Amino acid sequence: MAEEQGELHILQPPTAGHPPLDIVAVHGLNGHYKDSFTAKSKTGKTTMWLQDLLPDKLPGARIMTFKYDARAVASASPHGVRENAVKLIRALRDKREDNALRAASNDKSHAGIREISECTKGIVFFGTPHRGSDDAKWATLITGIVSTTIGRPPSEFLKTLRSNSEGLMKISEDFRPIAKNYAIASFYEEHVHRVLGHLIVEKTSAVMGVSHEETMMMGGTHSSMCKFGRNDKRFDPVWRSIRRAAKGREESSTT
Score class of each variant (00 low, 15 high):
Arg114Leu: 08
Lys170Ile: 08
Pro153Phe: 11
Ser147Asn: 13
Glu118Arg: 13
His110Pro: 03
Tyr68Gly: 08
Lys67Cys: 04
Val146Phe: 07
Thr43Trp: 04
Leu168Val: 08
Glu83Ile: 10
Ala85His: 05
Ala139Ser: 10
Ile116Lys: 06
Leu54Phe: 12
Glu115Ser: 12
Gly80Trp: 00
Ile63Asn: 05
Met48Thr: 04
Asp69Ile: 01
Lys170Tyr: 12
Ala183Gln: 05
Phe187Thr: 01
Ser77Leu: 04
Arg93Val: 09
Ser75His: 07
Arg93Trp: 00
Leu161His: 03
Gly167Asn: 08
Gly80Phe: 05
Ala179Gly: 01
Ile142Lys: 09
Ala111Leu: 03
Arg114Asp: 05
Ser155Asn: 08
Gly151Lys: 10
Glu189Ala: 14
Arg71Phe: 01
Arg176Leu: 06
Lys137Gly: 03
Gly144Asn: 09
Met169Tyr: 05
Ala61Arg: 02
Leu101Trp: 13
Leu53Cys: 05
Leu161Lys: 02
Asn99Asp: 11
Ser75Gln: 09
Gly144Val: 11
Arg114Met: 01
Glu156Asp: 11
Lys67Leu: 12
Ser109Met: 01
Ile63Met: 10
Arg131Asn: 05
Ser155Asp: 11
Pro59Cys: 08
Arg96Asn: 02
Arg96Ser: 00
Lys45Glu: 10
Ser155Arg: 00
Glu118Met: 13
Lys87Gln: 14
Phe66Ala: 00
Phe175Asn: 07
Ser165Phe: 13
Asn84Lys: 06
Asp107Ser: 13
Asp174Glu: 15
Cys119Pro: 00
Ser172Ile: 13
Lys87Trp: 07
Lys170Val: 12
Ser147Trp: 05
Lys108Glu: 09
Ala72Lys: 06
Glu166Asn: 08
Gly122Asn: 01
Thr160Gly: 12
Lys57Pro: 00
Lys42Asp: 14
Glu118Lys: 13
Pro59Met: 08
Thr120Val: 13
Val124Pro: 05
Asp134Val: 04
Phe187Ser: 03
Ala136Glu: 00
Asp94Asn: 10
Phe187Ile: 01
His110Val: 06
Lys87Val: 15
Asp134Ile: 12
Gly151Trp: 05
Thr43Ala: 15
Thr160Val: 15
